[in-house]
Design a protein around this nucleic acid. Structure first.
Lengths: 141, 141
DNA sequence: AAAGATTGACTAATCAATCTTG
DNA sequence: CAAGATTGATTAGTCAATCTTT
């Protein structure tokens, strides 16, 4: 289990490391930033579903996350053009700003941390392992 | 940020994957199992501190975690032999059993997942990256 | 009926204040 | 005063029930 332990430890440390950088810079927390990045990626068709799938949280959590982002003025729900059960979640100008600033801090922190590493090799190694999980029965709720 | 995203995704997927295996097997959740493993590793001198440090949670969370484990009959607080501010947290026989069963499920799940991989290479790669974080000012609360 | 989302009850974390002992 | 731990208030997640729309 050495690999498991080392991986969990590293991921936790990296998350906390970046989160501290964001806080120091007055940028949104990594949790909020991650949500904003997802919403941006799927814009303008981002829904609660996209949050749940990309962030691997439950629908309920995703719905409440959207509530919080909206209350903080970072996003705004728009009527879905063709499905009245759903909404599009659009970044407000404030949200765009927060995303831009946060993404830059994240970028910087990572490029310092990974300077000199063969990043594309790391990415493909991690993706390959991840794909090995996908073949086993992984359910999403 | 590709590496960051891939890593977070993989770690989350792996955690959920293993957690499902544990649940299926009727073993303790991965959160509980992780705590039991820490307590076992530092036995017989395991305290709330060890939980907080190894699991990277706050003291308050560690204290409440110990409460829950105790309520479930998996551990029992013993008076610290030389420091009355603290307690030793010992596994009960039930806790030992849960640990043994859970650890086996974890082992099995990982060896299936990683079959054919060069595990020691993976471990040292991850540890090396982790150590690069340690040099930057990382605070623990 | 199934899909999308919301809500309420519950769980487990954080932070800050506090208490006890070193 | 430091260190170790506990507790209360708050935050963010899960799960399950529910409502609306497809």
């Amino acid at each position: 289990m050495d690999f498991f332990d080392a991986l969990i430890r590293y991921e936790t440390n990296l998350w906390n490391h970046v989160d501290r950088r964001l806080q120091t810079a007055g940028a949104p927390s990594l949790a909020v930033l991650s949500a904003l990045r997802v919403l941006k990626r799927y814009a303008p068709a981002s829904r609660v579903q996209e949050l749940r799938l990309e962030l691997r949280i439950t629908v309920g959590a995703a719905s409440k996350l959207a509530d919080r982002l909206e209350k903080e003025g970072l996003v705004q729900r728009q009527p879905h053009p063709s499905d009245r059960r759903s909404s599009f979640i659009a970044l407000t100008p404030t949200g765009e700003q927060a995303l831009t600033r946060g993404a830059r801090v994240l970028q910087d922190a990572l490029s310092v941390h990974l300077a000199g590493e063969d990043i594309s090799a790391l990415v493909s190694a991690v993706r390959r392992l991840d794909e090995r999980l996908a073949v086993s029965p992984a359910a999403a709720r």
